[in-house]
Nucleic acid binder design. Structure first.
Lengths: 351, 351
DNA sequence: CCGTTCAACATGAACGTTAATGTCCGGCCA
DNA sequence: TGGCCGGACATTAACGTTCATGTTGAACGG
């Protein structure tokens, strides 16, 4: 069944066993024509018998394509990215691509090494969530002709295709909904990272406030410090948001609503509010971001912005497939998918 | 800087530019001796100038090792597996291995294709969470000499190394803690999958009950139906647990405590209890499993079993590295890491 | 019956790298 | 001074495929 020493069977083994040329065996197995039906059957039978598995490195070396997607993600423990991984992996697999995963953990150094690694392994294409600490590492990918799609965070300097969530719209919808529910003063709780995702959400918040003619006094946007690198790839920590929320609650005048940058922050906020004896939504409304699996089951259930993770992942994979195929698609170069507001009890104030 | 047509520079390009042989360039860049210092400097400078990136497929083809870990996971949206991905990817990267990720989504067919795919790409080794629908797909890996480590779920028929959580102990500790807190009748809420993880937890539950001399009437173990394959790789759904919990609450006699198979189930249970006007922990205690990031911030905060995800991932990677290196390690073949109970308010009954 | 055609296969080269030998030449020692 | 050694490089082969191009032999038409 297998050769001595655990070595794998090759085309040559099969060819020798059947007194055929290597090429004939190759063509027979890959289904190309110019091979007699009886020969093909013979080859297939022998390949089956010895458990032949093609060596994709050898194949890739000659074809030039490794049939591999490189996926570069900041943090798999972020549920949004976890879903992206799933949907991209599925799409890749459906098209016979493998997935080479690299985690950057928001580190520029890791990002540079990731780009280098993708180049070495000659991936067919790359889907990248950039750290946004500079475009250099990813510029090289495009320079040597590796199709690259940016995911969730854009680097406009490079002309790459991009698909992500419309965070500006998400921030706008969250804030507009709070306003519609009667909030006049609103505080935003956002992570302290210099990425467009967050800046866009805040922009949406400002737009909603401005449209409603509401003011945004100093301290309306509160930053939750990021504690990455303490351990490997932590998920967001509600604890940090909890402490920031406690600072907020010491203020003289409380806001009517808090818009959180993600559902974990809302969770920390819930605790701080409970400790202060404040009721959600009557004393203060809370809106999350991300619609994490737990959010519907909090008490009160959390109004939040649902992200189109699956759709974004699928589009990213499709964009990459198109670019690999070489056909210029009809799709726009940059694509923003609208998130949807999920209204739940944390904003259901009795009027 | 780069060649026309986006093609990559090769050793041959550098050799031609410097009037050297390809081999000399190779040895100069890979740091082997037998190369003059001035030549080496020249080669390095030229490689740097043209932005040379080695082709790892060609290298792998001749060395026989692809410097790649194959990681096969059932569902990245499971926070436990997400953390495993992170820690394994980190460990792999530290040792210059890349990570080839495949998602099986609890499907035996996907699993078989995953094994095939790992064989094709000649991974240096594989870390696998088996679906446990049969050992056949993974048997082949070992047969052709691919070092394989089983993760979290064992397949005892194969003689592979295994590292996972001691779920029996976890189930025992959760149950014993409930008993210590005064519970006499306890119901277990478990997912409806035929995997050892779950069976072990239930065994631990039974052991704790037996040791305490408590009975386990019919209906003590309730199964939450799995709804995978509705969408791609869903995280666990509290909704299913919620419905099962409602069935439980219709019973004549309520248990003193419920031990949930994961924290999401506890979440669904919380809602069902709240709707019935039951207070945790005074009317009923709840213990979760997994210590998901949200669990500490529920109200009441959830007593749960913390899984050693990071440690398990690191050990899995280390086991694989050892096996790849060929050295028989001093470690036991099968390794179970003890989870720890995290006591919180959901079992803090006022005595 | 001969030239043409085409199916069915074989042969040789190539992909980019590493590993095993070869070759040259300068310097060392007896 | 002759033989030998070893450093510094070159040459050749190999990894397992695929692709482009040969080569055979039989069938076929005029």
């Amino acid at each position: 069944m297998r050769r001595a020493g655990g070595r794998r069977h090759t085309l040559r083994d099969i060819a020798a066993a059947l007194n055929l040329s290597v090429n004939t065996v190759s063509r027979a197995l890959s289904g190309k024509d110019g091979i007699g039906e009886k020969t093909r059957a013979l080859v297939r039978a022998e390949a089956e018998r010895v458990g032949y598995v093609p060596n994709s490195m050898a194949r890739s070396l000659v074809t030039g394509s490794a049939m591999t997607f490189g996926l570069v993600i900041t943090n798999p423990s972020n549920p949004f990215y976890a879903q992206l991984i799933s949907s991209i992996e599925l799409r890749a697999r459906e098209h016979d691509y493998s997935l080479l995963l690299t985690v950057t953990d928001e580190s520029a150094e890791n990002e540079a090494r990731a780009a280098e690694s993708l180049l070495r392994s000659s991936v067919s294409g790359a889907i990248v969530v950039p750290v946004q600490a500079g475009a250099d590492p990813w510029q090289r990918l495009g320079a040597v002709g590796v199709p690259t799609v940016l995911l969730n965070r854009d680097l406009p300097d490079l002309g790459y295709r991009f698909v992500g969530t419309d965070n500006e719209l998400g921030g706008y919808r969250a804030t507009a909904h709070a306003i519609a529910c009667g909030a006049r003063s609103i505080v935003v709780l956002e992570e302290d990272l210099p990425i467009t995702t967050i800046a866009d959400r805040i922009a949406g918040y400002r737009r909603a406030m401005t449209e409603a003619g509401l003011s945004m006094p100093r301290g309306s946007v509160m930053r939750v410090p990021t504690r990455r690198h303490d351990q490997a790839a932590l998920p967001w920590q509600p604890q940090q948001a909890y402490q920031v929320a406690r600072r907020m609650l010491r203020r003289a005048r409380l806001p009517d609503a808090v818009v959180a940058g993600n559902d974990y922050f809302a969770l920390g906020l819930y605790r701080a509010l409970a400790e202060h004896g404040l009721k959600v939504p009557d004393d203060l409304m809370v809106i999350g971001f991300g619609d994490h699996p737990f959010s519907a089951f909090l008490s009160p259930s959390l109004t939040t912005v649902r992200l189109p993770a699956e759709e974004v992942g699928e589009i990213a994979a499709d964009l990459l497939l198109e670019e690999i195929a070489g056909g210029r698609s009809a799709r726009p170069l940059k694509q923003l998918i609208a998130p949807t507001l999920v209204e739940r009890d944390s904003t259901a104030r009795k009027r």
